[in-house]
Amino acid sequence: MLGSAGALNLHAPLLPDPALTPGDALTSDPAVICTPGYTHTVRNVPQALKEPIYRAYGITSREKGEYEIDHLISLELGGSNSARNLWPESFKTQPLNAHVKDTLENTLHDLACSGRLTFVQAQQAIAQNW
């Protein structure tokens, strides 16, 4: 991945490191997770928590819009805001990036809310190999 100076950014992870980000769920209750607006009630990752996550992954500088601190188990799948569930996800890496993962999260949410999959199954699937 190219950084602002054209140098290859060797720290851009395609996938989270399971030793640093094993995943963590807050709930697997569909009555809670499938309620419209649920994620807005639980989204709370302060900058003071984000910075140590970047450092743990060896990312000491970044461009605006290059990364987001993402939930491995997304909030829309019942994930938590704990450091165990957060990692710096790139918007620019290929073939995997934040846009690809967002699509998968939406699909898993729809499958679980429709009852074709449990939230526990969705959480395990995305935490093990999204």
Rank of each mutant, 00 (worst) to 15 (best):
C113R: 09
E105G: 12
Q123A: 08
E89Q: 15
H109A: 12
L117Y: 07
N81G: 04
A7D: 14
A112L: 14
P18C: 02
D102L: 09
S61P: 01
P22Q: 04
S114T: 14
L20P: 12
N106C: 04
L111S: 10
R62A: 04
A56K: 13
I33L: 01
G58H: 01
F91Y: 11
A31V: 14
W130N: 14
D24A: 14
A125T: 13
G115K: 14
S114M: 06
P88W: 00
P22R: 03
D110G: 04
A25K: 13
L75M: 06
Q47T: 08
T39W: 14
I53H: 01
G65S: 03
H11Y: 09
E76S: 05
W87L: 07
Q47I: 02
C34F: 04
A112D: 06
F91K: 05
K50W: 00
T103S: 09
H11E: 13
I73C: 01
E51Q: 08
S82Q: 13
L77T: 08
G23N: 10
E89N: 13
T93K: 03
C113A: 15
P30A: 08
T21P: 02
P30Q: 03
E63A: 12
T27S: 08
T21K: 00
T60V: 06
Q121R: 15
E63R: 02
C34N: 05
L75I: 10
S74P: 15
K64I: 02
T93N: 07
E66F: 00
Y67P: 00
S4N: 10
G79H: 02
P13W: 01
L49H: 03
G79P: 03
Q124Y: 06
N106W: 03
I126R: 04
H99T: 09
A7E: 14
L86P: 00
V32L: 04
P13N: 05
C34T: 08
V120D: 15
S90Q: 01
H99M: 13
H109W: 05
N81S: 07
L96T: 08
V32A: 08
F119A: 15
V45W: 04
D29L: 09
P95K: 06
T93Q: 08
D70R: 01
S80P: 10
H40A: 15
K92Y: 01
A56E: 04
L86R: 00
V42K: 12
G37N: 10
Q121K: 06
H109M: 05
C34G: 09
E51P: 00
R62Y: 12
D29P: 13
A83L: 04
E89S: 09
H40D: 14
P13C: 04
Q47D: 08
H109S: 15
T118C: 05
D70P: 03
I59W: 00
G78W: 07
G78M: 05
A7F: 14
H71L: 13
T118L: 05
T35H: 11
P95R: 03
Q47Y: 05
Q124A: 09
S80F: 10
P22G: 01
L20K: 15
S82D: 07
L77Y: 07
D17N: 14
S114N: 07
E63L: 03
Q123L: 11
P30S: 10
R116N: 12
L72A: 04
T107F: 02
A56C: 03
A83E: 10
Q123N: 09
L72W: 09
H109G: 12
A25H: 08
D110N: 11
L75R: 09
V100W: 10
A56H: 11
A7R: 13
L86Y: 00
D17C: 05
